[in-house]
Design a protein around this nucleic acid. Structure first.
Lengths: 113, 113
DNA sequence: CGAAACGTCAACCAAATGGTTGAATATCGG
DNA sequence: CCGATATTCAACCATTTGGTTGACGTTTCG
């Protein structure tokens, strides 16, 4: 089940921090590792877990491997959680309308293709 | 971090199934365990994990311990995840205002009619 | 009272997880 | 070609996790 790997991946604070970093921009493995007090190999493993969960993708260009956030992977998990109540935080439909408006107003966003 | 325990708890399919069962109604431990092909002790442990994460609460009445879903525990995790949807194009300030409005809209009383 | 039902505890086990080091593999720049 | 940079691999280790079994403490009820 993809939910297994996604939730398990999100259960580690190092990995959640990495995801938050990638929210800013794509990053090379070495740059991802830099702020952490742990070996590069350990970060490489974390990135492997995130990749296996589909939460990021990694593309090698030259000797540098770029890490890119794949937020769609959270969608299924998010929807699963939403099913646990009207108590729940955000209405997804409202959220999508919000996103649609945001995308229209985005200044430097290249037109989709 | 509560996000650690919540996400980790959700990473197990047995525990997610238990939560889905409790969506229907509160249940006794024995009844929770009944559909699973695993010992009562194992289920008891799973319920302990869910309780530690705050996702359920357990109240003992007589010799029966009742398990009750606590969906509020998912709120923080849900909000965390939603901040990752299509983020590149989203203005964070707008997103936070959006969240504020969402949270302000009382979950259980209809807003307009 | 005494047996059955409810649930946890303790000890144990195999496998997975999160980390380390050191060697290995590409690739880039001079 | 050589050396530095980027990243993974492999072996290892300690801890956690998810499961088992059997004994144990409570509570209910005939």
């Amino acid at each position: 089940m993809p939910l297994d790997t996604v939730f398990a991946a999100l259960g580690d604070p190092t990995r959640r921090t990495i995801l938050a970093m990638l929210l800013e921009d794509d990053m090379a493995v070495t740059d991802v590792a830099e702020p952490f007090e742990m070996s590069l190999a350990a970060i490489s493993k974390h990135l492997g877990v995130l990749t296996a969960a589909g939460l990021i993708s990694q593309e090698k260009r030259g000797r540098v491997k770029w890490c890119k956030l794949e937020p769609d992977a959270m969608r299924e998990a998010s929807i699963w959680m939403q099913s646990f109540g009207q108590f729940e935080a955000v209405n997804l439909d409202d959220f999508e309308r919000f996103l649609a408006v945001e995308l229209d107003n985005a200044p430097s966003h290249p037109s989709k293709n």
